[in-house]
Simulated assay, not measured.
Amino acid sequence: MKATAEKKPPRRTQEERSGAMRKRLLAATLESLAEDGYAGSTLSSIVRRAGVSRGAQVHHYPSKQALMLDASEDLLKRTYRRLGELLLSVSEEDNRLQALVDAVWEQMFATPLYRAYCELVAASQRDQELAKALSGMLQRVMALFEPAANYYFETSGTKLRPADLFLQLSCVLSGLGLQAPLLNQVVIRSQLDAWVKQTAPVLRARKGINRPPPRPAAWDRILDAKPPR
């Protein structure tokens, strides 16, 4: 009886190869931003980090600005998706608000990816196109996050919606994340706990929510839309 010949994996299409190449370049860009800063993230250093040819980089991203624009969108898409995962992951915690704040800080704001985001925000102050891209994508992510926050949480004794309170939290986390290298962990912990303590009386998790919120019909269109350039 002849041994069954091993099937060769199907060859990837040109579109799949291009997509994989872009992912490598974008991942290398975000790593470089976190480690070397915006100024230190040159095209040549990113190409080396990604392990691709200079020709491949030029084909997909002919300039540093084009690469940074795509990297900023990729970063914010990752952020939205990760936030959704965290919201769902704390659904069974006794204190879901505290658990969520801790998880968001540790897994999003106290990470190299947030350092990369800070570098992009700083660079956008001198780059109008980058500022437009970051602003447009951030607004689209917020438009998707607001109904998710209102789905998982509810308020009482206030006219504020859950999304309003979580926007305040994002500002607190952003400030702490930016200054984290200058602050000790005791200060950071005390600020996170203070926000939870002052917010808990009016914000609570909805009971029985253990599924993701209904996916908006325009989810792909909103998240993947590109701002006019």
Rank of each mutant, 00 (worst) to 15 (best):
D70K: 13
R115H: 09
C118Q: 14
L97M: 10
W105C: 00
V121W: 02
K64P: 11
Y61I: 07
F166P: 05
V121R: 07
L173D: 03
A149D: 07
Q168Y: 02
F109E: 00
H59P: 00
M108P: 00
M108W: 02
A71C: 07
L160S: 14
Q128R: 12
M68R: 10
E129T: 04
L97T: 07
D164G: 01
Q57V: 08
W105D: 04
L113Y: 06
Q98I: 02
S63H: 15
V90I: 15
L160Y: 07
Q125N: 10
G157I: 09
T111P: 04
A56H: 02
R81F: 00
R115T: 13
A133R: 08
L76G: 01
A148G: 03
S91G: 00
D70Y: 06
Q98E: 14
V172W: 01
L173V: 07
R81E: 06
S124F: 05
A123N: 11
K77D: 10
P147I: 10
V58S: 13
L87G: 04
G157K: 11
E85W: 03
Y152N: 09
L88K: 14
L165K: 01
S170C: 11
T111S: 12
G84Y: 03
S63L: 13
L87P: 08
R78M: 02
L169R: 01
A99P: 05
L160A: 15
P62M: 14
R78F: 02
T158S: 15
V121N: 09
R78A: 06
